[in-house]
């Protein structure tokens, strides 16, 4: 329990804020981060949809290898990868336990492995793309691909307001604690303390929402004075804003390499569909 306590001490709101935002906005330094957002989004669209319809395990494995390489190139944070692995392991673990319960055996592992492969390909593709696109470029990329401006703007504004919300959450939580009463005894397995914290964490959302509502009054008014409505769906402004986007040789190269790899993979996959199991 002491270890848990120490681990919890290290997770401060400030820390989460810095990690999260550092991760979200610090992407243009990688190879993939320098690609045009449109290239990445279209690339992602392919790898997020196609694996669902694939049953060929050789092809899935090939895709997995490609995704793994890309994830490394994108320098995704180890924290996120850890969460992904945790998710996959618990998911498959539970299903395996369930299958044992219903009289299954070791043979039920293989089909689950196929599902896991699919999920991993899709998840790794997401991680690759979203660690390579900061919210701004993501929003611009979407806008360039024809997504309504209001949506694209909300996306980037959402990120902008995130630290403010986190800070406020922290602040209100503190107010609850400063006036609240923690259980005198921790209870078995700290359940009293845990219940106390869970309760106030839920309660925090109520003032948080009211405060946000109050704050947005100024924001909406300010957007008006800052010409936002003038710009929305004004093609001239959109063109100006997105003029920095351009497909460079490296985009074509990236698309080309992926295509070549896929052609080779599909050829190999059709020839040896059961290369691994």
């Amino acid at each position: 329990m002491e270890a848990v306590k120490r681990a919890l001490d290290k997770i401060s709101v400030e820390r989460i804020k810095l990690e999260l935002l550092g991760n979200a906005y610090n992407s243009s330094s990688t190879v993939l981060g320098r690609l045009d957002p449109r290239t990445l989004l279209i690339w992602y669209l392919f790898f997020a949809i196609v694996p669902w319809f694939m049953h060929n395990r050789t092809i899935l494995l090939g895709m997995f290898i490609l995704m793994a390489v890309c994830t490394v190139l994108a320098r995704a944070s180890t924290f996120i990868i850890f969460i992904l692995c945790l998710g996959l392991i618990t998911q498959v673990g539970w299903m395996f336990l369930l299958s044992l319960f219903f009289g299954g055996g070791g043979e039920s592992v293989l089909p689950m492995l196929t599902l896991t492969l699919k999920l991993s390909v899709i998840s790794l593709a997401s991680i690759t793309v979203f660690s390579s696109l900061d919210p701004e470029r993501l929003s611009d990329g979407l806008s360039a691909l024809g997504v309504p401006d209001a949506f694209a703007f909300s996306l980037s504004y959402g990120y902008r307001i995130l630290p403010t919300l986190l800070e406020e959450f922290h602040q209100i939580l503190l107010s609850f604690r400063l006036r609240g009463l923690r259980p005198q005894k921790n209870g078995m397995l700290y359940w009293r303390t845990a219940a106390y914290y869970l309760r106030i964490i839920v309660l925090v959302f109520y003032p948080l929402m009211l405060n946000t509502a109050k704050r947005s009054r100024t924001t909406v008014e300010a957007l008006e004075t800052r010409g936002y409505n003038y710009a929305v769906n004004n093609p001239q402004v959109k063109k100006l804003k997105l003029s920095y986007l351009s497909l460079k040789p490296r985009d074509w190269m990236f698309a080309g390499v992926t295509a070549l790899y896929l052609i080779a993979l599909f050829t190999l996959g059709t020839a040896f569909p059961e290369l691994i199991y």
């Binding site: 906005y25 919210p135 701004e136 980037s156 504004y157 990120y159 902008r160 924001t219 300010a222 957007l223 800052r226 010409g227 936002y228 003038y230 710009a231 004004n234 001239q236 402004v237 100006l240 804003k241």
Partner: peptide, 17 residues
């Protein structure tokens, strides 16, 4: 409303195209 300082300073003139 924008994440970085320069972005925010440019926001209004950009909106006016």
């Amino acid at each position: 409303v924008r994440p970085t300082v320069l972005d925010d300073a440019c926001f209004t003139p950009l909106n006016y195209g």
